[in-house]
Amino acid sequence: MTALAVPRVPSRFLPVIATFVVFVLTFGAGSVRYEGFASGQIVANLFIDNAFLVVLAVGMTFVILTGGIDLSVGAVVALATMIAAATLRAGWPAWLTILAVLGTGSVLGLGMGLMIHKLRVQPFIATLAGMFLARGLCFVISEESLSIKDPVFRAVATETIELPGEVTITYSVLIALAVVGIAAYVLHLTRFGRSVYAVGGSESSATLMGLATGRVKVGVYVISGFCSALGGLLFSFYMLSGYSLHAVGLELDAIAAVVVGGTLLSGGVGYVVGSVVGVLVLGTVQTIISFEGTLSSWWTKIVIGVLLLAFIALQRLIVHRQRDL
């Protein structure tokens, strides 16, 4: 019995590895098929075009790890772009605008978290309310698209950083990568982060173990709200405008990226790195479809749907195997 130590099956890494394999395969397929696909700049572009999605996926990873879901992220992104555009137009300095945006996102997240924890509203419904609220506030601010002319925003948006090999990236990429780093640190090296996993693994056990499950549950929605707002800022760098109909359906992309990245929707298993690779897979699919002139954009959605299905099936297999032990 003492010798019963089971050989370490890295089954928890399996989905992430699978995601990475899928990324390599899709990227490889693109490289074989299109000249100039396998360049460093294409990879860099994946990050540049999806920096905001990376940040959203990070926030969503926290929420999904606890077994919850956040439908509000797309709407909060739109709200962030609107607040940014409107306050800058009103003459606020860039730093104050940024603070206001991040603050709004966090407060919205806090509200939803409290609804879920204190009122025991299902995450689905609470964040649906958040989605309606954020999207509605956008329209209240303005129905028109507002362009952003602030020099600081413009500078951040347009300036590029030269990397070796004539690859350029934007500041948004750096910000997104920093968020990923911080998130990985929090999830793996802090008590809060480990409690996130514990709550997702078994909330009742976590409570009996004396963990502050309430704080964790509220906390992840605050983080997701913050990340959505930050993603919204990156999105406004990318678009240089605020618009109520920005980022419609982006929450689905974020959820898809997280699931394709190997995080279990039932909670407790997953890594932010997986979500980042998930975003890259979605980005690569999009890039391939844009390279292939004849393939139309709707194939993106279909392919994402199929990928989602494949990963859900893979997760079922893994969960089944663990239960059999």
Binding site: L252, I255, A256, W298, W299, T300, K301, I302, V303, I304, G305, V306, L308, L309, I312
Partner: peptide
């Protein structure tokens, strides 16, 4: 969710 995402593509 699978059909929610893929369905629009199919349409």
């Amino acid at each position: 969710l699978v059909l929610m995402i893929a369905g629009r593509g199919v349409a």
